[in-house]
Structures are given as C-alpha cells and as structure tokens.
C-alpha cells in the first residue's frame, strides 16, 4: 500500500490538521508516513496545502507530483490540484463551496457538502473532518476508529472539548459516502 494525498483549501479551513491527523493515524498503525506543508510568508488570505504520504514501505520523497487522491476545500485548490491527480485517481471536493465540475473524465469525484453538514452539526470548523471522513470511507487505508483515537494526540489541548464533535463529523463524512455507494 502506498497512498499519496494532497489536501488543500483556504488558510483556516483546517487543512493542515486533517493532514496531520491522517499521518499520525498511519504512524499508530505502524506505517511509514510523511506530512509536508506548503509554507509561505505571514500573509493572510492565501491557500494552504499539505502532502501526506502513507506507505507500508520506506517513503523516499515526501513530495508528489501525481497524487493518488486530493481533498480540495475551495475552488482555487480544485483548479490547481485536480489536473495533477494520477489517472483514475480520487477527488474529494467540498460541494458547499465549489459548484464547478472537475474537468476530467477519468477521475472518481466524491462531492461532499462539508460546510452544510458542519453547520448542521453546529460548527463550520469541522467541515475538514467531514471531508476526511468521506475520504476514509472510499480509501480504507486506515480504519476510522484509529483516526478518532488519534484526535487527542493531534488536536491542541485547548480544543479537546471539541473531540466528540470532530468524531461525529468524521462519522458523518464516512456515512455519506457509504450511503451513496449502497443506494
């Protein structure tokens, strides 16, 4: 197993956190992992992205030019990263904020109304977890329980009261995809 994922969105959408959460969960499972953020000067309003690699063998480069999957939370990210996905790869897109179709026939696209579901749950900020949940339902590289267990280690302590909400958000994203598949 070797999975290369790029996650991208606005700064503040929690992109870096879900990347770290996935990498941490992979590590708990005994896999090799890497997490590489894009970094820029302290200027606001930009996009943020990170590359996560999870593998059962030694990871060479922590970068990827052809990811297996991308999780995109805003339009600029979808425009930038969906053309890079490997042939037949996966795009998990935030349909709450992106109403443009992915312009490639070969890709599998999962549309997740992440902001809407997050609002239903009472906090827009867990939209990222819904996206990750949806991704994990499709790509079973790590089980959901391990990811949930990892929340305590990855989230800063001041946000630990939000762990139940984050777990619920992961579940909602996960269920969304599973329902789609069975319907």
């Amino acid at each position: 197993m070797h999975e290369e994922i790029i996650m991208a969105g606005f700064g503040g959408q929690g992109i870096m956190s879900i990347g770290q959460l996935l990498a941490y969960s992979g590590m708990i499972k005994g896999l090799d992992v890497s997490w590489m953020p894009s970094y820029g000067p302290e200027m606001r309003g930009g996009t943020a992205n990170c590359t996560v690699i999870v593998s059962d063998s030694r990871i060479a480069s922590p970068l990827t030019s052809k990811p297996d999957s991308v999780i995109v939370m805003n339009l600029p990210s979808q425009d930038k990263f969906s053309p890079k996905v490997k042939e037949g790869g996966l795009v998990v897109t935030n349909s709450s904020l992106i109403d443009k179709e992915v312009e490639r026939e070969d890709l599998e696209v999962i549309k997740v109304p992440a902001n809407e579901i997050a609002n239903e749950l009472g906090n827009t900020r867990v939209a990222n977890m819904i996206m990750l949940g949806a991704y994990l339902a499709r790509k079973e590289i790590i089980d959901l329980d391990t990811v949930k267990e990892s929340l305590t280690s990855v989230l800063p302590e001041r946000h630990h009261d939000l762990i139940p909400l984050n777990e619920k958000a992961l579940d909602r994203g996960f269920e969304l995809v599973n329902e789609e598949v069975t319907v």
């Binding site: 590590m27 090799d32 992992v33 890497s34 997490w35 590489m36 953020p37 970094y39 922590p62 970068l63």
Partner: peptide, 10 residues
Amino acid sequence: DGMLGQMMEP
C-alpha cells in the same frame, strides 16, 4: 533545508 525543517515524520 526548509523542507526537512517543516515536514513531519515519525
């Protein structure tokens, strides 16, 4: 380099 400094690994 910046990449090694910024990246996370186990």
